[in-house]
């Protein structure tokens, strides 16, 4: 037993320029680092949505049989407001004519704000029913449904959505106008028709694998 602590001779044990001690130190530190990462991972992971939260985000079935033409209902899916609007024949014709396309930011719906089966001028599966996530893509308020043309929004207003917080405007397919703060069209959630009177919001039709988490702006 030495009287004083010695740091140890610098005898290289087969490691050029380093000692066995160095190797052991580095190896032990590396393993300890892996251990620390393994210890921290469950704590970090626990903050992700829990199983019951995820299951509460399951798809919801909505009965659309009572919606009148020109009327909109709002339902909840994943704690978010979902607009389900039934367009009148006039409104469908307006959308199909698409006269105001030049005033829209993204008339072709090129941004990833909707599933492929809603990438059309109607931004929906069926022209008659519009399903949107009712959150303004600017800063998150719920836009008002203003289907009547004209009125306080001006003579050129054909109908659509108006967000009261900062004045963003969307058309009858939820496409955003130029010159307003909002950058993207209103998102379309995954949905499909279970029957003629029921829409299942939160689930793609069988032939689609669209991931709603991939959209640009909720």
């Amino acid at each position: 037993m030495a009287d004083t602590a010695q740091p140890g001779p610098m005898a290289a044990h087969g490691h050029a320029g380093g000692t066995r001690r160095d190797f052991l130190s580095i190896a032990a530190t590396a393993v300890a680092g892996v251990g620390a990462a393994c210890a921290v991972w469950p704590l970090v992971s626990s903050m992700n949505p829990a199983r019951d939260t995820l299951s509460a985000g399951a798809p919801v079935d909505i009965d659309i049989s009572r919606i009148q033409p020109g009327q909109q209902i709002i339902v909840l899916w994943r704690s978010r407001p979902i607009f389900i609007a039934r367009r009148t024949q006039d409104q469908q014709n307006l959308v199909k004519a698409d006269k105001d396309a030049g005033q829209l930011r993204d008339p072709q719906s090129n941004a990833n704000q909707q599933p492929p089966y809603a990438k059309n001028v109607f931004r929906s599966v069926k022209p008659e029913y519009l399903v949107l996530v009712g959150i303004c893509t600017h800063l998150g308020c719920i836009p008002e449904f203003v289907p009547q043309p004209g009125g306080s929004l001006g003579p050129s207003w054909q109908g659509g959505y108006f967000c009261p917080c900062h004045g963003s405007r969307y058309d009858l397919s939820g496409r955003v106008f130029q010159g307003v703060p909002a950058p993207y069209n209103l998102p379309v959630p995954p949905y499909h028709f279970v029957s003629d009177t029921q829409i299942r919001v939160g689930e793609n039709p069988p032939d689609s694998t669209f991931d709603f988490n991939s959209i640009d702006q909720i």
């Binding site: 704590l43 829990a50 199983r51 019951d52």
Partner: peptide, 26 residues
């Protein structure tokens, strides 16, 4: 994850055990 209310506390702990990722371990 815990809720300090007499009506919810017990269930919040059971939720931790069953639903929260790695909750049982923590």
């Amino acid at each position: 994850e815990y809720t300090p209310n007499v009506n919810l506390a017990f269930d919040s702990v059971e939720r931790i055990m069953r639903d929260v990722n790695w909750g049982w371990l923590i």
